[in-house]
Design a protein around this nucleic acid. Structure first.
Length: 606
DNA sequence: ACGCCTGTGCGTGCCTATCTTCTGATAGG
């Protein structure tokens, strides 16, 4: 909790009087850099410094700062505007705070511009190639004047690279392969896509003779919204058999490396998979190690150091003596910490919370009692009202809200007041049959360009809940977009703000909007915010979940189901909610029906 | 570059496997 605690403290002291003097609006200066922009700039500076062989600690300071700023629950720009002191953040001193201010003010950085004079931007892209680190990139640049990926490609084909000191025929071959693979795949995949590849592969390995445990670890296990590569941990008395089976997986395109305990393959789809095989007594330690995150691993290893112990992927050691390692619990126990759930292992305060015995009791799939966002064949869904309701019941739910699109979304055949009135009648009729599930009457109403809702209050007033959403004009300026949605929230019938950033992972960037301000308005207004569980969206971000929790704004985890099978996406939403530190009480749709109806009614009244 | 402690300096995130090439670079969490 270190980061948040510090932010809160500074808010309470210095910033409070500043905020009182300032008008509440314009929290985020127009054109300012977002946290992600700042983090990217710091990463680039670190990369270039590393190529220039700068002081390693300086490089680390930039990387650290990138991680801290990237994980902030508030925009650094807004914090500055409120007069907060950024040097209170861990790892941010006078210098880096100045550079953040510079990035916020000018959108650029003098240090970065200066570095580009000697080391052009293309070098950073070279660094991303597997097999190329700072030393080799520098050699390519110094000796062959290579600055871009295409120049490297040409040099490789001309055979100029293999003669450099430190390079050889093997390196040449691997780099050429890496360049091909780069155009083929590249980037991170959505969590749900990773699941499609990881689970069958894990199942395949479980059939290996003599294999014990098999688990998918890495960012997949931490439930990140996207996954870079797939990491698998297995136990076996005889690792060689499992390794052999792994590299001969039918979907294997290439074997990148193969050792007695670790191998890496690339699948035909371009996805990289690492397998680590250890003895059964090391399973827990290997799982901790391979689950990460790296920052979390370093943090717990430091704690061990402080106690004169050593943690590696084989166990926790005192000298040569192994104290633990068979289970994850035993590893954490050895350093006197409760087991930290994988979704929290990002070194974003979970270690401090564990020490203070204040880890959150995270929400689980079974805690959910309903889904508050679903569609039927009346608009763009694929199943009928009754099919959707019964499918929800089959998931053990007490209630499901049917929330069709409104008329403005013509492509989805959105409802006008007359058609919505007809559906209200159908739902009432269904509910009278007492089928063991309650359908809530709702709508996913468009927030129009000017902030008005797409349907009149006369019909909205007849519903149990109103989910409001943006489906058009994604490119408004930050100020306009924020204003538009705030105006939408002013309508007294709105109960939930749906997929609040509008992003589609890998396809559409989030629209530019002041999320902290939206959350604050939800708090004042007594309404709720959605965490859309669709694997293409996963929208609310984990950092914003955490902020909602701090503000006491309940989050509704909804699948936005367009078919009965879509209800299964709930697990992805729960994963993201857990990454956002949410417990059962922080989530709206864990409430039993009667309590939920009270909350919905209160949100409308206020 | 941070951060602590001091007094303008100094120490400073963990630990291991694999490959390629020759002692270390890169990658992995």
């Amino acid at each position: 909790m270190a980061v948040l605690a510090k932010v809160r403290r500074s808010k309470a002291s210095a910033a409070q009087s500043a905020a009182a003097r300032r008008s509440v609006s314009a929290e985020f200066p127009l054109g300012a850099a977002h946290n992600a922009d700042i983090a990217a700039a710091f990463e680039e500076i670190a990369d270039l410094l590393e190529i220039e062989n700068a002081n390693a600690f300086r490089v680390r300071a930039y990387r650290n700062a990138a991680r801290v700023v990237g994980g902030l629950p508030n925009e650094a720009a807004a914090m500055l505007a409120r007069g907060e002191d950024l040097t209170e953040l861990p790892g941010i001193g006078k210098d880096l705070a100045g550079k953040i201010a510079e990035l916020v003010k000018t959108g650029g950085s003098a240090v970065l511009a200066d570095l580009h004079k000697h080391a052009p931007q293309g070098l950073v892209e070279l660094l991303r190639l597997p097999g190329l680190g700072p030393k080799k990139v520098k050699a390519l640049h110094d000796k062959l004047q290579i600055e871009t990926v295409s120049q490297l490609h040409r040099a490789l084909q001309d055979g100029r690279v293999r003669d450099l000191a430190g390079f050889g025929a093997q390196t040449e071959k691997r780099l050429l392969q890496a360049l091909e693979a780069k155009s083929a795949s590249g980037g991170r995949m959505k969590l749900a896509v990773a699941a499609q590849y990881a689970e069958p592969l894990a199942e395949y390995l479980r059939k290996s003779p003599g294999v014990g445990q098999v688990a998918v670890a890495g960012s997949y296990r931490r439930a990140r919204d996207t996954v870079g590569d797939i990491d698998i941990v297995a136990t076996a008395k005889d690792a060689a058999t499992v390794m052999e089976r792994f590299v001969s997986y039918p979907e294997t395109a290439r074997v990148l490396s193969r050792g007695p305990t670790r191998s890496t393959i690339v699948l035909r789809s371009g996805i990289q998979v690492d397998l680590r095989v250890v003895a059964p007594e090391s399973y827990g330690a290997a799982l901790v190690y391979f689950t990460g995150s790296k920052a979390h691993n370093i943090a717990i290893r430091r704690i061990a150091q402080g106690r004169g112990l050593k943690i590696n992927e084989y166990g926790v050691f005192s000298g040569k003596r192994r104290l633990s390692g068979e289970t994850e619990d035993s590893v954490y126990q050895s350093i006197r910490l409760p087991t930290i759930p994988p979704e929290l292992r990002e070194d974003r305060g979970e270690i401090e919370a564990a020490k203070a015995k204040s880890l959150p009791d995270l929400i689980e799939l079974k805690d959910l009692r309903g889904d508050l966002h679903a569609h039927t064949t009346a608009t763009d869904g694929r199943n009928s009202l009754q099919e959707m309701a019964l499918a929800a019941k089959a998931r053990g739910y007490e209630y499901v809200a049917i929330t069709e699109h409104s008329r403005h979304l013509t492509i989805a055949h959105g409802l006008d007041p007359a058609r919505l009135a007809r559906q209200i009648g159908q739902i009432d009729a269904f509910n009278r049959q007492k089928r063991g599930i309650r359908i809530l009457k709702g709508i996913e109403v468009d927030i129009l360009d000017d902030g008005q809702l797409d349907l009149p209050d006369t019909i909205l007033s007849r519903l149990d809940l109103v989910v409001a959403a943006v489906h058009s004009k994604f490119n408004l300026s930050r100020a306009q977009q924020t204003e538009r949605v705030l105006r939408g929230l002013d309508n007294p019938y709105v109960t939930i703000l749906a997929h609040p950033s509008g992003r589609l992972i890998g396809r559409r960037e989030p629209y530019d909007i002041d999320m902290p301000r939206l959350l604050k308005r939800c708090q004042e207004r007594g309404c709720f915010i959605e965490l859309n569980a669709h694997p293409d969206r996963l929208d609310l971000l984990d950092t914003h979940c955490r902020m909602a929790k701090e503000l006491g704004v309940l989050v509704s985890i909804n699948t936005d189901a367009h078919s009965t099978s879509d209800f299964d996406n709930m697990r992805f939403g729960v994963g993201q909610a857990r990454r956002g530190w949410l417990g059962r009480d922080d989530v709206l749709n864990t409430r039993p029906l009667a309590r939920l109806l009270e909350l919905l009614a209160r949100a409308r009244r206020s």
